Computed example of a mutant assay.
Amino acid sequence: MAVKWEWENATAGAVAGFATVAIMHPLDVVRTRFQVNDGRISNLPSYKNTPNAIFTIARSEGLRGLYAGFTPAVIGSSISWGLFFFFYSRAKKRYSGDEEDKLSPGHHLAAAAEAGALVSFFTNPVWVIKTRLQLQNPLHQTRQYSGVYDALRTITKEEGWTALYRGIWPSLLLQVSHGAIQFTAYEELRKLLVDFKSEKAKTKDVEVLNSLDYTFLGASSKVAAILFTYPVQVIRSRLQQRPNQDGVPRYADSFHVIKETARFEGLRGFYKGITANLLKNVPASAVTFVVYENVLKVFNLTRKKD
């Protein structure tokens, strides 16, 4: 029964992840282009702000530009959310036994960090491909990837399979810290909200929460996580860029990114694209948790009938 419950968590997470990517992908493209543009790269267009970026990409590249990297984004998001909820639920069950309500913030933090680390190893190649497809534009001087398979084949042929793990260390830090902060905030706010609403309703049933509550919980927990971890996203994106024409990566490692960004752009450089990121991920997180919690409710009702 425990394994079945874990797969229900994975399924709910995967469905939720897919639903959010399809709606918010253009903002993801904009965010990635802002993140890597340090003002010194000639083959990347410059945008004034998020609305200008969307308008410019739509005008010069069409819908294809706004949805560049959509396939790996869908695959990566669905797999990431599915695996994250799967590993997260397993970790919580291992820490708590059958008394999940007694988990401490430290337990939630450890469970989310554990899940995030495992997800990073499985999904990093997908994010490398997504980043590179999103950065392709009419100014590119090298042959563009025609799609996911061509990107995978070209990367492994020209750079070796290790290139698929470019940015793995900031990715690990990001997954562990971002997931840990978001899920700890989510769980703790959820407890407070359940207690508050249960006290008013004179019941201890978690079903007192509704979709509006999950919207608030998903959005607020995401804002907290983004503000703390966004610089790591910038570092990862810059590492995952396609190498220059001579085959040499623009940045050697995470320390090189930090040094160059701080030198030429200051603190502001580590928060490039954060507006698009907030616009994309805060409502996306809200939708994800609403879908996730409601899918779980469906599973619970089905199990009770059985």
Score class of each variant (00 low, 15 high):
134 Q>N: 15
151 A>W: 04
112 A>I: 00
129 I>Q: 03
109 L>E: 01
129 I>D: 04
142 T>Y: 13
104 S>C: 08
129 I>E: 03
131 T>V: 09
98 D>S: 15
88 Y>Q: 01
156 T>P: 08
86 F>Y: 07
118 L>D: 01
106 G>W: 01
121 F>G: 07
137 N>C: 12
92 K>S: 01
148 V>F: 13
135 L>C: 12
152 L>E: 08
123 T>W: 01
134 Q>V: 11
99 E>K: 11
149 Y>E: 14
145 Y>A: 08
157 K>F: 13
84 F>N: 03
152 L>P: 04
153 R>S: 15
158 E>I: 12
89 S>A: 13
78 S>C: 13
144 Q>N: 15
147 G>M: 11
128 V>R: 04
148 V>P: 08
98 D>R: 12
145 Y>H: 14
76 G>E: 02
135 L>V: 11
132 R>A: 10
81 W>F: 14
156 T>D: 11
150 D>I: 03
150 D>H: 15
99 E>Q: 08
121 F>Y: 08
109 L>M: 10
78 S>L: 07
143 R>C: 07
158 E>W: 07
140 H>N: 15
136 Q>N: 12
115 A>P: 01
116 G>E: 00
128 V>F: 04
147 G>S: 11
157 K>I: 05
88 Y>M: 00
80 S>G: 10
85 F>D: 02
151 A>G: 09
154 T>L: 11
156 T>Q: 13
129 I>A: 11
150 D>E: 12
117 A>L: 13
103 L>V: 05
75 I>D: 05
133 L>N: 09
153 R>G: 05
85 F>Q: 10
102 K>D: 13
133 L>T: 09
114 E>A: 05
141 Q>Y: 05
93 K>P: 03
117 A>P: 05
111 A>M: 04
135 L>Q: 12
153 R>Y: 14
108 H>N: 08
119 V>I: 06
120 S>P: 07
73 A>S: 13
124 N>E: 14
127 W>G: 03
93 K>F: 05
74 V>A: 15
93 K>D: 09
96 S>P: 04
112 A>T: 00
79 I>P: 01
95 Y>T: 06
145 Y>E: 11
115 A>L: 00
110 A>Q: 02
75 I>H: 07
74 V>Q: 11
125 P>N: 09
136 Q>R: 13
120 S>I: 07
92 K>N: 04
129 I>F: 03
141 Q>L: 14
106 G>Q: 01
73 A>C: 06
128 V>I: 13
147 G>T: 10
102 K>T: 06
123 T>S: 12
155 I>Q: 11
78 S>I: 02
85 F>K: 09
117 A>S: 05
80 S>R: 01
107 H>M: 14
93 K>N: 14
159 E>D: 15
72 P>T: 06
132 R>L: 09
102 K>F: 08
160 G>H: 09
81 W>T: 10
75 I>A: 10
103 L>A: 09
138 P>D: 05
126 V>S: 05
104 S>L: 12
146 S>W: 13
84 F>A: 04
100 E>T: 09
137 N>Y: 10
74 V>W: 02
127 W>L: 13
129 I>R: 05
